[in-house]
């Protein structure tokens, strides 16, 4: 199990746990929930922000937010 900021390009993972207190509700509403798949599409220079596909939803978040999401690689 790793945190989401460590995922590498073109890797697929599955969200295991999220820290609700530190995540914006909007992210949760966009599908960032345990059990959903996450895929790293692209990284901006300096690896920040991250362009992810979470449960079919294309979005970008900053690395510091991604640290609060635990995933399992598949």
């Amino acid at each position: 199990m790793i945190t989401l900021d460590l995922i590498e390009k073109n890797q697929l993972g599955k969200i295991v746990a999220i820290d609700t207190d530190l995540l914006p509700l909007k992210l949760i509403e966009m599908g960032c929930l345990p059990g959903n798949e996450v895929y790293l599409e692209q990284l901006a220079p300096l690896k920040d922000p991250m362009y992810l596909v979470i449960d079919g939803c294309h979005l970008a978040i900053r690395t510091e937010i991604a640290k609060n999401i635990k995933i399992e690689l598949i």
């Binding site: 914006p24 992210l27 966009m30 362009y51 939803c57 294309h58 979005l59 970008a60 978040i61 900053r62």
Partner: peptide, 10 residues
């Protein structure tokens, strides 16, 4: 707090 989430639309 930093809350940065942005959709990348088609």
């Amino acid at each position: 707090k930093t809350y940065f989430v942005i959709e990348m639309p088609n």
